[in-house]
Nucleic acid binder design. Structure first.
Lengths: 130, 130
DNA sequence: ATAATATATGAACATACGCTCAGGTATTTG
DNA sequence: CAAATACCTGAGCGTATGTTCATATATTAT
């Protein structure tokens, strides 16, 4: 915490007034993004959301579900992962509302919850492909 | 792994041919998203990217940097977090190329790396606000 | 009912992560 | 030069996470 000189209520240290935030290249008309700064509670919810996407197996599941609905055993086989592991991961995706499912006999077919999920996946995939 | 009956090379179990993926609601002309299914190596890089965003402190840093460039001590003060913790987190953001910085004297001013980061942040923020 | 299949779940273990603490580098000031 | 400031970094600790293993539930077949 910068021990400020006198009347500086907050912000950067004293002395070097010369170059305060010479922020020339600002963003476009900064669209409204809720409270600012981001509340701790909101940041935790957001972090949990990203955390669900921060796993290779879950991302590969999303990749498969991006093209078509699949049952658990097919997902496990296509990813060469145990069905137990897939089931655990699908639960995480379910809890985060990233996938939906429907039961047919003893099988359970999963698919992405909505197109937003696909869009997010595709956007980041493209971003990393650059 | 479903022990298939005879000539079924892969995919769902035998028997219940009745309801194979009745996937009616397909996505729009499925835009190309690279290799399919997502390669393990790619999934790991993508997971690492999301992992950087999967932390409340880093998200709040991004929140602050969304509106303006800031030095480390201001970021620490605004978030009520130690400068050491902020520095550690900024390193993670730096390594992931989510932020840029410029040195001015003994201060270091950070800002978002580019507008893609802001867009991603804003999009997910809106998504969770619904 | 019994067996087999498809999926879900809890415990446990190894790993990964974020914070604090202590110390280090670089720049400015006296 | 020494002291102060702004920031960075490595080690260590407590906690969270993903997998495996064993077991449980539900559905279908015999």
């Amino acid at each position: 915490m910068s021990e400020v000189g006198f009347m500086a209520s907050e912000s950067s240290p004293k002395g070097t007034e010369i170059d305060a935030p010479i922020c020339d290249e600002q963003h476009e008309p900064t669209r409204d993004v809720g409270s600012f700064p981001l509340e701790v509670e909101d940041s935790q919810r957001m972090a949990e959301f990203f955390a669900v996407l921060a796993d290779p197996t879950r991302l590969r599941l999303i990749s498969l579900l991006s093209s078509s609905e699949s049952c658990v055993c097919d997902l496990a086989e296509n990813l060469s992962v145990s069905e137990s592991a897939v089931s655990h991961q699908l639960r995480a995706l379910r809890n985060a509302r990233l996938v939906q499912y429907r039961k047919v006999g003893r099988q359970v077919f999963y698919r992405l919850h909505d197109h937003h999920i696909f869009d997010l996946y595709a956007t980041v995939r493209e971003h990393l492909a650059e």
